[in-house]
Write a protein that binds this DNA or RNA. Sequence first.
RNA 1: GGCGGGGUAGCUCAGCUAGGUAGAGCGUCCGGCUGUUAACCGGAAGGUCGUGGGUUCGAGUCCCACCCCCGCCGCCA
Length: 427
Amino acid sequence: MREKFIEELFLLGEGQRVRIAGWVHRRRELGGVVFIILRDSTGVVQVVFKRDLLGEEQMSLARKLTIESSLIVEGIVHRDERAPGGMELHATNLQVFNLAEDFPLKKDTSKEVLFDYRHLHLRSRKVQALLKIRGTFIRSLLDWYDDHGFTRVEAPTFVQAAVEGGATLFKLDYFGRDAYLTQSSQFYLEALIFAFDNVYTMQPSFRAEKSRTRRHLTEFWHFEAEMAWATLEDMMNVVEDSLKQACERTYDECGRELDLIGRKFEPPSGRFPRISYDEAVEISKEKGVDIRWGEDLSTEAERAISLEFDEPIFVTRYPKATRAFYHKVDPEDNRKVLCADLLAPEGIGEIVGGGQRIDSLDELVKRIQEENLNPRDYYWYLDLRRYGSVPHSGFGLGVDRTVWWISGTETVRDVIPFPRTPTRLKP
RNA sequence: GGCGGGGUAGCUCAGCUAGGUAGAGCGUCCGGCUGUUAACCGGAAGGUCGUGGGUUCGAGUCCCACCCCCGCCGCCA
């Protein structure tokens, strides 16, 4: 079988014999010589097929090779300036495992058709690079939490009640009862901090909104953390430290991939600015955005603010009416709550949302009633305030959106292997 | 949910303003070429112009209805 990866071939010397395996990336045929660019997970190399080394029978096999055919080839390494990368393999033996049918993806294929064929497009070098960046970012992010006393936990995907009133849930039949797909693991994490103090999870969340934009998915990867005894400021520090480290490591480990996709990404180095909602409204007004105090920040306002800064920026203490019921009221101004959103630069918008949770039973019941929700639906969530309640804070980070920001692609769909949107359920 | 753009060959698009036998490039197939770099050269095949209805001698083109896709806003991560 395979002896070397393509990447390793470039370390070999002139005249060495080697056997590699991979897929036909490009082919160019002349009368008596066939050039194949062969791809594996580590890179590409030009393989040259000539009659004198291969013989007539294998030469005719080489002439039939189609794009994405899989093969094992033995040959002799040659340095040649005419070869891409300065090195090529002169084939001495060809073993075709599968002669591919006409590959449907060509140079002029539109983005939508590429997503129709996502199962095939994944093997492109660009998607490969993006998913490598994604994997590296996720690993680096989780490492930070593992190294800082957080316990990894999991929450159910089937749930009975909404976490927040606003977001729409996917409803499904659960043995004759109504159930929903989770839109956040937050409440479960709040229960788990009583066992572990600091917990995190990373799993999909689901939103049934028909949001047809380049930053929305109906199924997205949600990193969430919850911390006992933590204030809003503690929470922001955790977000900042972990995100900085994850960005730095991704930058360090994925230089080749960032180059390949043409992304000039600078990991944030300075302290993330923290501005209040009040200041955010002022900045928006100065930039000509039509906004009134008390309204949530519009996409236009978020963009105007994020373009003012080079680093991700926290916007804190929004008006109570713009946030879900579980946020703790700001003791310095009871019109506001102790929350923070993190806006990514370059107009990407919100990648983190979080804050300090209500720890008083009476206050929480009052807020649930004000939202016309039924406290009985939240019985176990209320229990957490009955038995040893503690001040606590937490947040959710949109993994896909963050990787989108790092990689600078056109849409968030580019950075997840199999995106789900209101109109896309396959492949 | 509101607004805008779009649906013509396998793919990317032109043709629609001014109705008159359906076009290009790429890809595919066939042939040529022993150093190609998204190779090149010659030839061929390939289309119920999103669906239904209407106007007209005649509709891809004009009118009506519907379906689907993309983007922006709202909602959020």
